[in-house]
């Protein structure tokens, strides 16, 4: 992950519900193993963390500024069956 945030979509003006919708749409359309990134506010970060971690995504969150966070979401690799 680089420190450059210029190319990352800024979703900080979205409500938590619409942010969820937007992220689900991006993840649905993303190629397998791709990482979806965005910039969000603090309250949005809290909204993303638990539900996506719980539903099979690897969630990474990094503070980039005051009330501004960079979020990366990636589908977790399936555990190989024994």
């Amino acid at each position: 992950m680089t420190g450059d945030t210029a190319e990352i979509p800024d979703f900080s003006n979205l409500t938590c519900t619409n942010l969820m919708i937007r992220l689900k749409m991006l993840l649905k359309n993303a190629p397998p193993h791709a990482t979806v990134e965005c910039l969000v506010r603090r309250d949005q970060r809290d909204t993303i963390d638990v539900p996506f971690s719980r539903t099979g995504y690897e969630v990474k969150i990094r503070k980039v500024d005051t009330n501004r966070y960079r979020v990366s979401l990636k589908k977790k690799e399936q555990e190989p069956e024994n």
Binding site: M20, I21, K24, M25, L27, K28, T55
Partner: peptide, 15 residues
């Protein structure tokens, strides 16, 4: 703007 069909397709299956 949102494409409603894309929205439904993306969120369907949510808990």
């Amino acid at each position: 703007f949102f494409n409603l069909q894309e929205v439904v397709d993306a969120v369907a299956g949510s808990e």
